[in-house]
Nucleic acid binder design. Sequence first.
DNA 1: GCAGCTACTATCCACTCACT
DNA 2: AGTGAGTGGATAGTAGCTGC
Length: 687
Amino acid sequence: MSKTMTPKTKQAIQTLIKHLHQADVAYYNSKPIMSDGQFDNMYFELKQYKQEFPDDKAINHYFSTIPYNTDNTFKHVHHPYFIGSLDKTRTKDAVAKFLDKWNRKKGDLWYTDSFLVQRKEDGLSIVLYFNDPRMKKPFVALTRGGGHVGEDITNELYHFNRMDIAKIRQRIGKRHLVVRGEALIDDKDFNRINKHHEWANSRNLASGSIMNKDPRVAGKRGIFLSVYTLINRDEWTDKYPTELEQLKFLKSLGFYIIKDVHQFPNTPEGHRQIIRFMFTFPNWKRKAVGHPIDGMVIKPNYTVNLSKIGFNPHGPRYSVSWKFPPKSAIGILQKVRWQESANGKLTPVGILKHPVHILGSEISKASLASMPDIKRRGIMLYDHVTVRRMNDVIPKMIKPIKAFRTGKEVPISKTIPKGAIRKGAYLYLPINKHSKTVMIHRWKRFVSKPCLNIMGLSYKIIAKLIDEHLIDPHDFSSLWRIDKKKFMSIKGFGTKRWDTLQDELRKAQSRPLARVLMGLPLNNAGLALLKPIAKRIKNFKPILSDPKRLQAMHHKLIVEIPQLKGFGQSSVPVIDDLFSPDMIKQLQNLTPYLDMIDDQKSSSAKAKPKSAQKLAGMKFVITGTLSKPRKHFTTLIKQNGGKMQSDVNGKTAYLITNHKSNSRKYRAAVAKHVKIINENQFEKLLH
DNA sequence: GCAGCTACTATCCACTCACT
DNA sequence: AGTGAGTGGATAGTAGCTGC
């Protein structure tokens, strides 16, 4: 039963088909406008619509007419077998469901003793026919094409690397053999050749090389065929009933056989192992393969009954593939939200019309960084944009798909709030001290971890306290004078929350002066500046109550602080801000509740005696997750005389990480020949 | 008194920009 | 080169409420 379609859905489907078609055409003209992952996402979406609306003509038309390049001189030949593609699964559940279909009783149609899991290589699918009676020549090589008609590339095969087709033909003799493999180019060859070209990826290069009129070109570019299955296996199962035996046989004939085929038993534990193996396949391993792979394939090892299981319209029913989650996706930039911060700074965040899925997570918003960044990338409002997660984590809008523009796009500068002032790359709104956003931001800072560290007062809780008139938004000290009865009468607030708050307030009393000062709405004031200030103030309470001493201290700081190493005249406005009437009033109000004494013991990680300092002078950078919190390592480093850096530079001694990655720090470490060690090697440095 | 639910928070990560 | 501020999502954890 197909549901009725809303006009909105209809429009969505039309747009999807239009874009898939554009992408198809671009792809077959070797000028792809999006990545495979992005294409897959859209394709998958349309497939889901197909399930929902199986009778829709537009959808069915798309799936029945898949375009291919007609502009070539290669001969089209019919495949005597249907060369299908595998069903794509996306979830663990779908994989589990596939595995559960198989029985362990020999004789059953769906029987196998074990499964094979192998890479899904991302090249050009090619079928080799030896002595096939339906072919005009004793040896024919065809591309897969749409599965029914392929292109004759027999001449090119003689120039492929890693196999000698003439020798293989000799060994086969008169026997009938049909094998399938993937034409691939190694990453190192791709990179070498692409210095002078602009191929989108090595699959495109493989395709382009084979299509080149000169068959020698493919060979020179390092193309090879990775053979992964026997197609006419029914004629061979008497001798070789399993896939593994068939692959071994093909290898003995001289074919280059796909690497890393893993076998798992058809048992509940085996199923769990398969899922674990596939879904935790690390990125570095994927890169280490040396040529692109885009997923995993699962197939039964026992092949005797496979032809009886048969095909669905796309390919065999007895095998499925799982594709790696795409690294980027295409979304529509529907809205730009200008987020206002405590100091009036406006930062743009791109809101997507529909969430997209990248690396298994749903992304609905992505950073637009700043106006210069937006201009560099040429992104406009209502554009289709590619979205990536930087280092697989942080969502960011990368670039517009200009081919999808309708002419209705609007420059993002038009969305800037009225009254915003430009200062460098950022925009600011004049600070309105009564704006609720600004007030809450200031409270957030005051109670935040590096400042007063009062737990349990989040953005929403603060908003509630202000709304219920429990605190005076302009006076931090009002937090200590909340009316217990009123507090408890608010929905969601009880004794526990009250007790916790009181407990937190007591703890806050002894926070070091520097952290109290950092809680104030001062611009550009961090601990680095406030610590030397607090050190000179020592005990603020007696000074606050004496205007003369206050003035003297203000003067002393303005003179002394800019003299310190690392500080300049820029610290003066911060100090002036600190001694402005508003701030002093805040501090005076807070005197009954806070100690406001400089914490001299706080030179945190106590350094070991110099003789024991194994890391003296060494600079360290950490990237990625380690087995213990980073603090564990930073403390150890500091205790032993080392220093932490946030970025790798020429002076970095070691990058500590447990995994290879493509992060900025890792790349920098490789480029700058910085030693890369894991946490175990780091521990050894200390012994 | 307990389980299950809802609401919410802190923390982590990489990166960008401003500034000294 | 170093510091500070500020971006979002995943995750694990906390607290309070509700129903039994």
